[in-house]
Amino acid sequence: MDVSMTVNGTAQSHDVEPRTLLVHHIRDGLGLTGTNVGCDSSSCGACTVHLDGQSVKSCTVLAVQANGSDITTIEGLADTARSAGNATGDQDWHPMQEAFQQCHALQCGYCTPGMVMASVAFLEENPNPTEAEIREGLEGNLCRCTGYHNIIKAVQSVAGGDA
């Protein structure tokens, strides 16, 4: 069936099978492969994107459920920051992307797009969190490389405004 959505600011319309998972539509249908799949039980958060401004696990949303919605993936994050006038650093990225590099909050980078998207959404809902709140806020995003230590530092630095 026809599914239309705005993805990273671009209107997209495709005919998709109803069972198509949003993450597969984004990756295989739209070719935006930055969003990754790390599990099949909504546990790991590697597939986190923003759906109408909120973090969702795109492996547990059907593409048809997202019909008519506004999606932001990691590929579009820096653009949203630029439009909002808060892009930072030499790369002109979203402050969270910048902070992840500055704090060495990524190693293999596989969980990173989801972790960044979850972190951005979390801070929008809780702009001044404690360390414990950040840790709880990222409870649904697993990372196997970093031990989370530097991810927490990155989110703290954005929350503190010093990224």
Binding site: N36, T73, E75, A78, Q97, G109, P113
Partner: peptide, 18 residues
């Protein structure tokens, strides 16, 4: 800072399923 990070932080790099 790591040279690897920009591609990983923007979704530009390619993993096997990409």
């Amino acid at each position: 800072l790591r040279k690897e990070d920009p591609k990983l932080l923007t979704g530009e790099n390619k993993f096997i399923d990409d």
